[in-house]
């Protein structure tokens, strides 16, 4: 179990014309055994950031500490030793195409000087873990994307790392395969206590996997917190945009003229609130009509967020009271016309 801490990290790229700051003074700490996510749009600097964590990218400034020990500045054999204890998987898997699955995993073992006579056994063990024992002698090009990523995971785990870096590891996979990979990651996190740092632009992955997450924009971490809190109470503009797009409750423009007379409300309920009796109760108590326009329930890890778009019509005074009643009984209420 390892912690990883980043202190005031910056990465600049020099081009002949200008200096581009890809990562700007970023600090955060990932606890041992945690699954920590970094989300952001492409170009936000998250890939550069994750690549500094095993010094594939040298930071311009700042420190990276693993279990309190600084690794920035390490070179040669010492650096390789640290890298052997940090597994990494990639969006495009990055397997050696002209080598078998066995040889691909063996590479990591060779890198760490793992005894030759024990390699066979270790590779079988790793392939069992990702359920690919029968593909030992196959070549990467004969595997599906999901299988390739499983080989990637097996290779990353070869030297019993304590930290696993995932760089958009599911972004090239379809929904079902993504789920399959996430299950494996959860399993190794749970059973081996691996600390996982996962970079993605997919909020589907974030809500499903991350314990805590950071949101990056323009090289800065703009928001950091529990995954549920980020989804439930996004603070910054970019986070709202990302989360909003994820919940995707936009109303088609053609519909808006037909909703011109009453109020268009977004109700959110999360935690203890339940909604169904509330809608019928309000429509019975007050002289209003409530139509449900759009709705969605999302499970963020073990908690739930529900969003409902309703259109309420009635006389002004009744409407006002109805809205008040609704507001008291949901997590938040937003008038979409304001």
């Amino acid at each position: 179990m390892s912690t990883i801490e980043v202190k005031n990290l910056s990465v600049d790229f020099q081009t002949p014309k200008q200096t581009i700051s890809a990562v700007k003074n970023v600090s955060f700490k990932v606890e041992a055994g945690e699954i920590f996510g970094i989300v952001g749009l492409s170009g936000a600097g998250k890939s550069t950031l994750v690549r500094t964590l095993n010094l594939l990218q040298q930071p311009t400034e700042g420190q990276i500490l693993i279990d309190g020990k600084e690794i920035t500045g390490l070179k040669g054999a010492e650096l390789r030793k640290v890298r052997q204890k940090i597994g990494m998987i990639f969006q495009h898997f990055n397997l050696i195409e002209n080598r078998t699955i066995f040889q691909n995993i063996e590479f990591s073992l060779k890198a760490s000087g793992y005894p030759k006579e024990k390699r066979q056994e270790r590779i079988d063990e790793l392939l069992s873990l990702v359920d690919l024992r029968d593909k030992k002698d196959a070549y990467p090009n004969n595997l599906s994307g999901g299988q390739k990523q499983r080989v990637g995971i097996a290779r990353a785990l070869a030297n019993n790392p304590e930290i696993l870096l995932c760089d958009e590891a599911t972004s090239a996979l379809d929904v079902e395969t993504t789920e399959e990979i996430l299950k494996i990651l959860e399993k190794i996190n749970r059973e081996m206590g691996l600390t996982i740092i996962f970079i993605t632009h997919e909020l589907e992955v974030a809500k499903r996997l991350f314990h805590r997450m950071a949101v990056m924009e323009n090289g800065l971490i703009v928001e950091l917190g529990n995954t549920f809190d980020i989804f439930a109470n996004p603070q910054k503009e970019i986070t709202r945009k990302l989360v909003g797009r994820f919940f995707n409750l936009a109303i088609p423009e053609e519909m808006t003229p037909t909703l011109a007379n009453g109020k268009l409300l977004e109700l959110r309920y999360q935690g203890g609130h339940t909604l169904d009796p509330l809608i019928s109760e309000v429509s019975k108590t007050y002289d209003v009509f409530i139509s449900i326009i759009h709705g969605k329930i999302e499970y963020i890890r073990n908690d739930m967020i529900g969003i409902l778009l309703v259109y309420v019509t009635g006389s002004e005074s009744q409407l006002e009271q109805a809205v008040q009643k609704l507001e008291q009984n949901v997590y938040s209420l937003r008038d979409l016309r304001q």
Partner: peptide, 15 residues
């Protein structure tokens, strides 16, 4: 990317 993965695995240049 394949080279990057090999470097990330901690392999030395000869390997």
């Amino acid at each position: 990317g394949v080279i990057e993965a090999a470097v990330a695995a901690g392999g030395n240049t000869a390997l």
